[in-house]
Design a protein around this nucleic acid. Structure first.
Lengths: 241, 241
DNA sequence: GTTAGCTAGATCGTATACAATCTTCGTATG
DNA sequence: CATACGAAGATTGTATACGATCTAGCTAAC
């Protein structure tokens, strides 16, 4: 059952659902549920089930699933259906490498462009991140941490690369769901604050360096051992390693 | 009429078409037609017309169009349909900036990883590029030039970033279609050869520098003036500038 | 007891029909 | 003659029904 991950309406009433949702809204709802770890990697997203939940025909569901597949947050298997993606170790490493490359460029550029609007955007977000942490809502903290990187990427006036980063952040969330070890501090809160300060002081190189270490730190806290082929993987899983 | 850009079958017979094409094949055919400048920016891709051309129902066409839209090579306008994308000047500049960032990273990495397979892949492609140029087939030269960058990106064992590059190359082709000035040499052939040599010699930094200049050169050969709002743009187009 | 084959159920893939929307062209009116 | 209005045609958006494919569980044979 998936009703744990996707509720019919955000406020509890089913009113919005009756009025038929756009493919866009459906897409966003599922995307967010995946990023927020409400839908876990491997989950089978059955079309009929989603039809009931959202109160629409299969056509709209399929449109939404197609877009999600384009973002690589779900995998469309022929004649089997849609599954929440399960990034491999190799994919995981490349996602973080790509983030270092692209976000690194964007943060340098943002530092060169800093203005009042950027100041507000970055600080506003830090406040919501604080609030989430204070409330002790773990799911919200995860979401806010990811969002910080998105807000940062959005400051560089580079919508194309910001979209790439959006996909990479979503996939990072899946990666964390699969490979996280006990000791988080997924995104060290303080590092986010330092990043903002460096950007707003125009210290692009320093900001890029810190961002690189920040992302590498997240990656290092994951359990990304090279995993063997399925056969030996089975042996290892059964304790014959 | 669009039959100039999309022929029913590659060899002239209509046999393949009868057997019903996959959404995948349809997607690839349209994607290639756009990259090859057989379908020009702004072209309206009508669903019924495509149904006739490919001999399938609208469902498969829509699946293909949805994927193309995800690549941003076509634009899906609500209730109006699909149009070949017309990148703005701002988008054009960001596409080349993104290419410098991402391809720059990949070429450095490729240089660090060079092996026999890479040697063959790069040289094989240069030969097909030579052949196209010798045959004097302008369309094929354009296609091969774009493909070179794709082949290069594919050498860095980074499928995610290689996919980003694939989209950027396709959009570059649209940008060239719109903004090209008379004097091409779109991709200086000799620079491709030099790039391959530097990569295969493991000179990553030098290769990255040359690639940066190469891409900047292509961008500089375009007519990317800051374009005014539609109103003044019309005045300029009619010679009242 | 194990394995191969088979049947029934579930799920997705596609085509088609109908509804909603937009565009265009003709018409009437100022 | 120019402009606003309206109706017809064209095009896309959606739901639904049917067919294809896969999965699971059962039965039977070895």
């Amino acid at each position: 059952m998936m009703s744990k991950g996707l509720t019919k309406a955000p406020n509890g009433t089913a009113a919005k659902t009756r009025e038929s949702m756009d493919p866009n809204q459906i897409y966003t709802r599922i995307f967010d549920a995946i990023v927020d770890h409400k839908l876990l990697p491997g989950t089978h997203l059955k079309e009929d089930e989603l039809c009931d939940l959202f109160g629409v025909g299969r056509t709209r569901i399929r449109t939404a699933l197609s877009r999600l597949s384009g973002d690589h947050v779900i995998e469309l298997v022929a004649n089997r259906g849609a599954f929440v993606a399960r990034p491999s170790v190799e994919e995981a490493r490349e996602v973080f490498r790509a983030r270092r490359v692209i976000e690194g460029h964007l943060i340098r550029r943002a530092a060169d462009m800093r203005d009042d609007a950027m100041h507000s955007a970055l600080n506003d977000h830090l406040h919501t991140e604080d609030a989430a942490r204070a409330a002790g809502d773990a799911a919200r903290v995860i979401r806010r941490c990811g969002r910080y990187h998105q807000v940062l990427a959005d400051q560089a006036d580079s919508p194309i690369m910001a979209r790439f980063v959006r996909e990479l952040i979503a996939r990072s969330s899946l990666i964390i769901a699969i490979y996280e070890t006990g000791h988080h501090g997924d995104c060290e809160m303080d590092e986010h604050r330092q990043l903002s300060e460096l950007v707003l002081q125009g210290k692009g190189e320093a900001a890029a360096d810190l961002l690189d270490r920040h992302l590498t730190g997240i990656e290092d806290r994951l359990d990304l051992k090279p995993q063997g082929d399925p056969a030996s993987d089975l042996r290892a899983s059964l304790g014959f390693g």
